[in-house]
Every structure is written in structure tokens, then in C-alpha cells.
Design a binder for these strands. Structure first.
Lengths: 220, 220, 220, 220
DNA sequence: CAATAAACGAGACGGTACGTCGAGTCTTCCT
DNA sequence: AGGAAGACTCGACGTACCGTCTCGTTTATTG
């Protein structure tokens, strides 16, 4: 799966006919995202993308390995699907709110519902999973990692706290609320997660004892 | 879609020929689960189920509206897919461990990968979503609700804590770890979630201050 | 295929519930003929017959071996499908007209279009072919044979004429006109066949010479 | 149903890949005819044709509306199903023998058994009937018409004789003998029809008297 | 006159073919 | 030279019908 790597330089583009270098590719990706929003992942067909983007299916398969890769690329690179941006607000809470609620964050509708469609495909397609991980996940992971690292340096995270564990809290809860429980996720819900779950876990002074599982008594 | 509703108990059962009432239906569901584990949701075909269960496709479509419904029913009712059981261990921690790690809990492989396959289908099929919600989700939600309610009565959950928020923590983080991050989830990971995130959020004595932010929005 | 033989005595029939003896059987056959006329042979389904006649499919298959046999029996025995009757009018021409144009003759619509449907099935089903031959064909052949035999005795058929050959003329031409050419067949057409083809062939005084096939000269 | 009309000649033909234009189509038709001979019309399945011709069912349904249309086209155009040829032998008898006994004539096995299978379908499908009539029937009718016309000009057909009536004699009697009576038809039988029935009807000098009937109807 | 066995309606079942649709590959034609 | 157009193979889909089967009921005949 090396199709997704060759990010064409987009050489100023032709004047009359939009070749598939850069400009043309974005049109296809935008079409894909638009159809994706309208139809959902599994009702999206490559024939529809081809017809709608006035592209040939051969062109699509020349650039992308298949539906899943195209969608990953579309969700990653399309104009309306911005990259997450890391903003140093000076506090862990502010950083998390910024990451989660800005464009490219967890409150966006498109990536989440697309995620649902890709999940099953990823399980059986290593290339797709790698592409998804590298192109969609990695930037988001990097941003969140940076946020937690800054917080650790600021002393906002207690010493014994496992940052890897904190990592799953925000995206995991949002995912569950949206995809499983079918609820809506807005900035307020994000704030409640941060204030009610994440920060308490980051701040806890006395580590919870793990003495016994069956009859731990009252103090845990 | 009322196929999933008519749960014919068929306790008396036929003596000679195993009609699809009860016994036969379970065979089909078990076959479905087996193929599901082997192939995954999207590589599962109804032709394969029919052939493997020595059933006719017509029979499958007579009972279930399609692949998604069959899978929901299979994951819900097949013998190897047990219902979650609520065990009162005497403590919130013990209850959560029991709920998450026992059969039918969050560490089972089958339901999670199936979940991934169903998610996209659910978005466009209200009947399927309802069936999934009522048959798969509801019992699990009920158990978790009961666990939290007992904990609240025991005083294990602080007064101002939003239990609805705590609800998403465990399944959400497991979901994220398994489906998005691709990690494995074992009892230890569950324990770390409970001890490191959930219980601190339930216990927190002083609400986290909200003064330290550069971009607080409207006092969120 | 012995189902078609047991022509039930129809013992006065019951008073309340119409068993499949005699009376009930005729209802089914009549339903069959009605649907046959409406739908044609290949669009007729046994489910439809069963539903329409308020009979069980099991009942149908208990009496008849399948669709083809049922249809043969229906066309043969239904009230609206009378047997051909042999009338001695005193002349070959009169007899032929009577046989062809009366009820049960060649101008009836039902048997001919049903014939079309049965033909292909007969080729691969010896039982069906036998049933068709014995029940539908035999009585018609017998009548026609009798007609020609009487004509021969009367001297209406020349000495050297092959009666077996004459036999095919009338039904064959009607069949061709109706099924292949798509034309309609009425009494006048029958008369033209008889007068223009059959009787000349029966009367011919000088047998046609068979000298040469490629260059026979003018006289043949 | 215009699939059967666009007879792409594709004389130039591709040099590398045999598209379905022309060459590929013929392969499918030949496969169809071969299976048709082996299995008969009603045991022929499009799945078998597709598998045997290494074609996709989608391709079959893209070109033909269904089994019946495919078969009509196959019987009409396949290499082993030649068109009837009109040979002027100099006499009516010679012409008829040539038409009936040569390739594409009435003694061929394929068309007749196929005919039986198509008949019922034609009754309910106007498109199919039209296609069959135009593609299969028309050339055969034309040839026979030409034969009779030449005979009329030669004076081999008496003045008052209805040629349209003569038309049905040969194919009708063959049809009846083959499909209904289940007999075999060889060149000798054809000759007997011609000599014993058709030519006497064409030659008759004195119209058959109509006085000898007890039930003459309205002077028919 | 009740008990019993046969025959019934209803309709689910396994099987097979149907006709449709989407994925991914390939060729032709056009710019 | 490279893209649009679209036909191709493959295979799963969901539907329809056939002929078989079981169920529970009704009927006609026995004990």
C-alpha cells in the first residue's frame, strides 16, 4: 500500500484540464467525503464516486488500493476534514478542550461515522489498518501525547499516574457515547468528561489500593 | 422488523423433527457465531451460513431480515454468547471486575469485533439499531446501571458525581483500546481502568478547579 | 405415476366436508384450469393452486406427481375441458369437421396453449409424457383413427394412401398456425385444411412419382 | 427488448482482447447451444452458461433480457445453427426437400426441442415473441415463401390453390410428428409428406365436392 | 357413542435458479 | 501520455418456486 504516500507535488496544475495531480485528487477526495456524509461508508460505492467526480474507476484504483484506502485518504486530506492542531493553552484542561472541540477534533461528525464503517474492514486488511493508523490516527495521537507531556512537565499529572491510561479516556468515552449509546457529543459533554473523569484520574493523590478483588472493603 | 421479537421459547419442543422453533434456530445461530469468529463480520456470507447449517437461504430470510439481524440475534442468543450476569460482590470495584471480565463481558472477543461490523449498518437501519439496542445493549446497560446504583447506595460514589458519565468510562476505554488502538484487553487492563480512572472519578472530594485555562469558552 | 389412474368412485360424497374424493378433486382441477388460462403454464405455481383452491400443497402432491401431471389431469378432466366425441356424420368431411370444431376439438384455446407449456417438460419426464399420451392424446387419436377407418370403409380414401400420414395433417397444421405462426384458428380455417389439403391427399388417383429429387422435370 | 437488435458486426475486431463485441458474444452463444443440446431448454441455467463460458451473469443480463432471449439469439446466431438456405432445384419437390432436410431445416434436432421450451414463454412475453419471430422464424418463412412463389410461376401450383394453406403443411406435420406424437422425422418422412400431402394439394384439378356432408354448416 | 386412524389445511423446510449489485481489473477511445 | 468511459469477472445478495415434511385438526370408520 504505497499509493497513499506519493503526495503529488501539485505542480501549479495545468491550465485547461485538471490532471489528477494535486488539484484533481482533492476534487475526488472532496466528492468522496460529500458522498460519505450523504450515504455513509457502506452505502458508498466507487461507481458513485467515479461518476460524481467525473473520474474513471481506473483512475481511482490507480491512486488508491480500494474503497477503504480512498475513504481513509478522503477523511484525512479533504478540505473539510482538517488536521488536528495542537494549541498550548497553558493548562491541561485548556489543551484538551482545544484538541477535542476544535476542527479535526472529536466532535466532528464525519470522521466518527466513517470510523464505524472502517472498523470491520480494518480487522482483515493490514494495509488499510496501517494507512488508517498512520494517516488518521497518528496525528491525533501525537497531539494528545504532546498535550499530556506538557501537562506532566507542568506538574498537572500526578507522579504515579499512567499516562497511557489517561490517553484512552477522552476518545474512548466520546466513541462510546456516539457510536454505541447513540448520544450526541458537544463541547459540554467533553468538558464534563475532562472535569469529571480525566482530571480526577490525573490528580489523584492517593493511589487506589489493589489489595483484593472480591472483597475489597469500603475504602476503594 | 419484528423477526427478532417473536422469541418462541418452544420449551415443549418437537420430539421427532427439529423444526426451526427453538432447537433448529439455535443451530443456525451457533453456526453463525462460529463462522463469525472464523471470518469476521464482513467476510461472513449468508450462503456460507446456509450451507454450513444445512439450512436454506429462504429459511434464513424467513426468520431474519438480513445479515445484520441474523448476527445480532446470533451474538445475543447463541449458546457461546452468554448474557452478562450481575454479581453483587459487595463493592463497586468487585462488581465492575465481575461484569467486565466474566463471560459476556468486555473481554470477550466475539461481541467486540462483531460490533465493529454492525456499527456502519446500524447507522442506516433503524430496525437493526433498535434490535441491537434492545437485545444486545439493554442487558449490559441494565447490569452496569445496577452496579452503579448499588455503589451509590453503599456510599461508594461521591454525592456530586454524574453516574451517567461514569457509565461510559469502562466500555468506552475498552472499545477504544481494542478497536481503535488495536491493543489487547485483559483483566489487568480492566483493573487499571477501574483503579486508575473510574474509582478516582467516583471518589473525588474536591471538584477540579476551572480557573487555570487560557481558553475557557463560556465558563465550561 | 399411478396417481392419475385411481379414478375415485366418488361415493356420493360427504355432506359437510368435501374430501378430495371426486368432488373436491374436481374443484382443484377447475381451479387449476382457471389459473392456467389466466397465467399460462409456466407462470402457474402450485402454491397459487393450493392457496386458490384452499388446499394444502401436500394434498396436491399426494394426488399428483407434480405440476405437469396436475395440469394434464386438469386439462383432461376439468368440467370446462370436455372429451372429444366421435360423431358419425356419414362422410369423412363431416366427421373431421365435427371432431375438430366441437368441444374438445382443435379449436379450443385452453389445451393448445397448455400444450405449449407441457412440451418441454415432456421431453425430460417419461411419466409425464406417458400420462399426457394416455389421458390427453389417446382419446383424440382414437376418435381420429375411427373417423379415418370409417372413411376407408366407405371408400373415401384411395387405396394406396397412407392413413398414418393423413393423420398428422389436421392437428399439425392447426398446431403450426396457432403456436408458431400465432394465427387464430376457426371453423373456416379447419374447413380449408380439410378441403384444400386433407381430402385431396386422400383422393388422389395417381400417386406422385418419386423418380428424381434434384431434377424431377415438370410433371411433379 | 432491443438487445437482440444491435447486431454489432465488429468486423475489424480487437487484436488483443476479445471484448463481447462479436467474438466474445459468439463464444457465449456457442456455449449456450452446446448446453442446450445436452440439457434441453428447461434444464439449462444461466449460471451454467456463465460458468461454462467463463462469463459473468452480469454480462449475460447486460446483453440479453433473460434465458429465453439468450436462447433465441443462440439458436439464431450460433455457428452450429446455420441459417436456412434457399436452393432453386428447378422443381417444387426438390426445393422443399432441400429446405426441409438441409442444415437449418426441419430435421434438425436443436431448433425443434428448443421451440418446445420457448413456446410457453413466448405467450407471455411480447418482446420475446417478436424476437423469435423476426430472428428465427422470418428467414425460414422467407425461404418457404420463395419456394412456393417459384413453384407458382413454374405452374406447379394449380390456379385456385391457397398458397398460405400449403405453407403450414410441411412444418406443421413435422412439428406434430416430432413434438406431439414423439416420432422421429427423417428425409423419408419429409418425402412422404411432400408426395402424399403437399403436392396433391397443390395439383388438385377438380376441387373436392362439398355435397356429401350431413353437417355442412353454412356451405363450408 | 367414544376412540382411532386416515386425510386434511396450513405452511416451514432444504434446495436450486433467478436477476441485481458492487468490487476490482482491463481495454478502448479521446484529448 | 494519461485519463474518461465503461465492459468485464467474480461472488454475494435477496426472491421465488418446487417438492418434502411436520404439525394440529377434522372426518369417517371402527370397538
Amino acid at each position: 500500500m504505497n499509493h497513499l504516500e506519493d503526495d503529488v507535488p501539485a505542480v501549479g496544475a495545468a491550465h485547461t484540464r485538471p490532471r489528477v495531480e494535486g488539484e484533481r485528487e482533492e476534487q475526488i477526495l472532496d466528492t468522496t467525503v460529500r458522498l460519505l456524509v450523504d450515504l455513509g461508508y457502506d452505502r458508498l460505492t466507487l461507481d458513485a464516486v467515479a461518476a460524481d467526480a467525473h473520474a474513471s474507476k481506473a483512475t481511482l484504483y490507480r491512486r488508491w488500493r480500494g474503497k477503504a484506502e480512498l475513504v481513509v485518504d478522503a477523511v484525512t486530506r479533504a478540505k473539510r476534514c482538517p488536521e488536528p492542531v495542537d494549541v498550548d493553552s497553558g493548562s491541561l484542561r485548556g489543551d484538551l478542550m482545544a484538541v477535542a472541540c476544535n476542527a479535526g477534533g472529536l466532535t466532528d461528525d464525519v470522521p466518527l461515522s466513517v470510523l464505524a464503517g472502517l472498523m470491520s474492514a480494518m480487522h482483515h486488511d493490514a494495509d488499510l489498518e496501517r494507512a488508517f493508523r498512520e494517516r488518521f490516527l497518528a496525528p491525533r495521537i501525537d497531539v494528545l501525547d504532546a498535550v499530556f507531556e506538557r501537562a506532566r512537565k507542568r506538574g498537572e499529572i500526578e507522579a504515579g499516574v499512567d499516562i497511557q491510561l489517561l490517553f484512552d479516556v477522552l476518545p474512548g468515552m466520546v466513541l462510546h457515547r456516539r457510536l454505541i449509546m447513540g448520544g450526541s457529543v458537544d463541547d459540554d459533554f467533553i468538558a464534563r468528561i475532562i472535569d469529571g473523569v480525566l482530571l480526577p484520574a490525573a490528580h489523584r493523590t492517593e493511589p487506589v489500593s489493589r489489595r483484593s478483588t472480591t472483597n475489597p472493603g469500603r475504602e476503594l
